[in-house]
Every structure is written in C-alpha cells, then in structure tokens.
Design a protein around this nucleic acid. Sequence first.
DNA 1: TATCATAGTGTAAACGTTTACATCATTTCC
DNA 2: GGAAATGATGTAAACGTTTACACTATGATA
Lengths: 341, 341
Amino acid sequence: MPDVSIKEVAKLANVSIATVSRCINNPEKVTEKTRLKVQDAILKTGYSPNRLAQSFRRGRTNLVMVVLPSVGDPFFTAVMRGIRAAARAKGFSVLIEETQLNTMTADEIGAMLVSNQTDGIILLASMSPFGTEILSAKSKRLLPIVIGCETVSPELADFPSVHIDNVAAAKEATNYLISQGHTRIGMIYGEESSLLTKDRELGYRTAMKQAKLPIEAGWVVEGKLSISGARKATRNLMNHSHRPTAVFCANDEMAIGCLHEVKSSGLIVPKDISIVGFDDIRYAEVTDPPLTTVSQPAEEIGERVMYRLCRRIEAGNGASSAPEIVPHKLVIRQSVAAPAS
Amino acid sequence: MPDVSIKEVAKLANVSIATVSRCINNPEKVTEKTRLKVQDAILKTGYSPNRLAQSFRRGRTNLVMVVLPSVGDPFFTAVMRGIRAAARAKGFSVLIEETQLNTMTADEIGAMLVSNQTDGIILLASMSPFGTEILSAKSKRLLPIVIGCETVSPELADFPSVHIDNVAAAKEATNYLISQGHTRIGMIYGEESSLLTKDRELGYRTAMKQAKLPIEAGWVVEGKLSISGARKATRNLMNHSHRPTAVFCANDEMAIGCLHEVKSSGLIVPKDISIVGFDDIRYAEVTDPPLTTVSQPAEEIGERVMYRLCRRIEAGNGASSAPEIVPHKLVIRQSVAAPAS
DNA sequence: TATCATAGTGTAAACGTTTACATCATTTCC
DNA sequence: GGAAATGATGTAAACGTTTACACTATGATA
C-alpha cells in the first residue's frame, strides 16, 4: 500500500505526472475524461501523496507550535481545544511545548520557526529570553507569532494577541471581596516569571489601593501555579500574625489547593476564610463549596488566536497586529461570604 | 536570517555542500581545519538546516502521533508528560488527536501514517474501525504502532502495548468495597466504545460474582467519562428503588462528579455512600473527602510506550511485541466506610 | 483558408538535503 | 621509490512533488 508515488499513478493512467498532480490540486484544469482516468488509477494503486515531499516543495509544514506553561492545567486544555478546532478547520496540525517542563529553550523554539519545522507559533506563556532571539529576525520579516492569554511583555508588543483584560478582571474580583466587607485580603500569585499572574497581582494591588486598604507584608505569596505550591502558600498565610479573611488566587488550580489546605486546618470556607479563583476550570463548580472565580472564554480565545495566526501566515504583514480583548465574567458561587468579625 | 541554504555556507567556507553536510552529520569524517572553517561559516551566515528538506530526504518526520480520548483528563495529561519526556530524549515531536472531539476519522489517522506525515502512532484509546484499515497494510510491513493504557482489541492484539492489568485492578477495588461490608455496589463506567472502562467493568462484575453478590438492573450506568455525565448517572443511581451503598467509578473524573452529586443530594460520603475512583489524578487527594482510588504509574506508562514506539520505528520487525504490564496500586483515602445499615 | 486564441497535456527544472561513488592527496608498507 | 591503502573532499544523482514553459490539437475569427 505505501511506497506508491505519483509516477506509478501516471503510468497506470497513461498521463504525465504533471497531469496527476493537477488532477489533485487543480481539478478544473483537466478534462473530465482524464480526471476520471486518473482518479481510477489513484484508487487502483492506493496512492496518497507523500506529505514530506509536498511540504518540502511547497515550503509549508501546515504545522503550528503552541507554547504554554502546562498542559495539565484544565484552563489551558480548554484553550487548546479551541486552537485545535480552528487548526483542524484550517488544515493545520498542532505541536505543544510546555515551558514548565523546560524541555526546550526559548532559542530552540525560535530555531524551529526559522528552520521551517513549523509555520507559526502561538505563545500562551511569556518567554522573555525568546524575545531577543526573535527580535533579531523580526526586523527582516514579520514572523508568524501570535500571543494568547497573556498580556504581552514589551519586547513582544508588536505581535498580535488575544486575551482578557487581566488587570481589570483581577480588580473586579478583589472589589467583590471588598464589597462583601473584607478588609484583610491576601493573594496567591503564580510564578515570578509569569506575566499573566503578575497582571492579576497588579489588578489586586490596584483595587486595594483604590479602596485605601493596606496590604501587609506576607499577604502576597507565591503558589507556583500548582496545588501543592498553593497549599504551602496557604499555610504561610494562615500562620500570619494578622491573618487575612479572604484570599484571591491567581488561578483555580491554586484556589483548589488553597481551599483544601484551609479546610484541612479546621477552618471553614467561606465562614472563616473566603476564596476567589481565576479561570473557571471545570472542577471549580464541583469543589466544596463551589468556587467563586473569574471565567474566561477559553475555547474562544483558542479559536481566535489560531485564526489570527492563520491570517498572519497567509497575509504576512497584511494582517493586523492590534491586541484583541475578549470579555471576562465574575462567576459568583459559594466560596465567599462576609467576614466573621 | 532565514532563507540561507547549505549552498551559501559552502561558498563562504570554500568547500562543497557535501562537506558542509558532513560537518553537521558526521563531524568525524572531516578534517579539524575544514570543520572549523565550516562552523565559522555557519555562524556567519546564521545557517540552520531546512528541516523540511531533511525530512524529505531522510524519509523521516521525527513526528509521532498520539491518539487519546481527551487531553482534558488529568490522567492522560500525566501520560502525555511521560511520552513527551521520552520523545524529547529521542528527538521526536508529538502530535495529539482527541477521539472525543472526533476531529479525525480512524481512516484519516491511518492515512497520516501511510502518507508519511508521522513516523509512528501511539494509541491511548481504542479505535475499532481503525483496526481494519491498518490490518490491510499490516501484512506488508509492521506498522510502527504502540498501544498504551488500554487492553487491546483483538484486531490490534499483535501490536506492542503497555498498560496495567485493568481487570485485576478493578476487581481489587471492588473487593475492597466488599471487604468493608458492602453488598450493594453500583458502578459508573465510561463509554460503550471504550475498551478501557469495559475492562474495569469486567473486573467489577467478576469480583461481584466471586463474592456471590447480585448486580441489580440499573446499578451499572454510563458516565460518559465526564463530570456532568457522572452526575446524571449518579442521580439515576440515587433514585434506584434499591439504592447501592457504594459506587465504583471507572475513572476519577467521574468519581468527582459522582461525589459532588451525592453531596448535593444531601447524603454524606462516605457515611451514606462510599465511592472509589480510578487513575489517582492530582485532584483526587483534594476532594472532600479525599478519594480512594486506583493509582497507575501514568508518566511511566507514557515513557515506556514512547520508548517502545522508538524501538519499533528503528528496529521494525526486530522489536518485540509482547504486552508490557505495569503495576497498579489501590490508594486508600477517606471516601469509603462501612455501610450504615 | 490562413491566422489566432484557447484549452489540455507533456517536459523538465526546481526545492535543499544526503550519500554513493569518483577523485585526489597523503601516508604506509614492502 | 613505487604500489597499495587510507583519508578527505568533490561531483552528481536521488528523494516526490509542483509549476513555468513549451507544445499540440481544437475551434473561432477574419
């Protein structure tokens, strides 16, 4: 079955290989009669074009790469679902790289693009060192790169992006806690390197400032974007001499860790401690109590980001590079209540 | 920076393109002096080999495809992590296809292999119709396909596989419930098409039979491998005239849905209903109560399956095709207690 | 009828590698 | 010192497509 090339088809159909190629790619340029002859020969031989040769000749892999912090995070898998749906529609396959795994350096990722292994890249995670590598090539041609979810770092600001307004959303979440009467509000952010959670931290700080509420030292802790990291962070928060009555977590994964740790310590959510998450992953509504969180249109972000990448690949400089802001929504469930005191 | 081919390097270094190629791929076949000259030229031109051309020439994409039910399931993302680590070590990239999304038909997946888009396939989900397509080609050459997690369907039995003994593990889980005094035990299985959860169902049925316990009509329900599906299934179970006192769920995702639904209905876990899951995903220890479940070495399965695929790709028929069984473990947490009655 | 479009097909070059083979220079051995 | 072996490099073919260009036959136009 395999190993049959266009030549065999041509021979069997008694035409040239050019005609066979045309039958497949430009059927309108060929007579009805020969088309049928060739289709018949294709069926008989079981021919299917060698994609390697096609890619090589056309200079296109129809492969895009997505760089994200962790595929394990249900939020990103939701984004991926959108990306994949759009990719499928556009005839692309997608390759995934996790930055958390550190399997590839930023330079290697840049090299993949340059060496034609992929037609484009979607960045769902900030890669600061990557910026410099790319930048050097950038002056020469517009690289097909699109940024999703994250607010972009300054060096990458010229690339198209699709995301919610993370600062505003975090502010809104914090304001909700304030509106419920909380004045001592802590926060668990992700990682130092993650611009994404830095933006959310900024939103939180802005809200606190505008409400003239103090943020005490030790109230803002790193949760490493993981359940276990958040549990550790929560322990620190709980042991604080002036313990917060509410915690804003930069994502749901960490909110789940926080929730569990608070409950393990014998305190009750939301009576003793209120918790707000971020992302609205599917587990958020089955926690006990169900989690109040900020919902993002994850799949939509994925789709849009992929479509923009396609435009970039096809149109090059023609495609716009304006950031695209999609709406977020605060989803109120039962993990927040007025403070006890 | 891009668009510089081996020719430019050759010209700059004053050697033939063959020598440049050798410098890169067989440095030992080239003089120290010329090597340095060429390396210098490579740096100066910023050359990086065109992977498309390489793949084409070598007949290798260094790309493998993984077919799985859903990337959203934390168990599979853990397996993927293992696969990706091994792939990285072996110089492969990995492409993912979800069967739940139905983006590709089995025939299309088979075609990808035949048309050289990927060097091999890892099946983490059964694809029955796929079997027939593959089978026709199988007689001609041993296709590089390896099966993971699932017990294989008869048509695919000749391919190498890596998995736990699902039947034995499910039996063990059920026996644990029996040992705690339960006699009315229900089960939520995954999907009709999933051999994986069918095996677990078989284990459950075997355990019940050996303990001479009846399985009443309506005690075994479909949970669709999702939280919402499991909630619906649980509602049916709870409304049963002769309600089970324990439920064995074919995976943790469904166990979480089940747990939440039971609690929503006002019953207490494990006092009123005991629950056992399967997979030991990372959320399993932060549910309330923490979930008793069967743990699989997910990452290890992923690694092994990828290594076997590599051997298959490299050695062809030389590689063994014996199934590889990895150990499982029942992890006892707090979602099981003796029945109230 | 001679000329010119037009449409269908064939010929051959090109894409950037890798690699078998030929060539040439150097060393080794008798 | 000449023959043979060894080692480094160059030459050119090959991989399977796509596509610009050339060619032929057909029908339309003057």
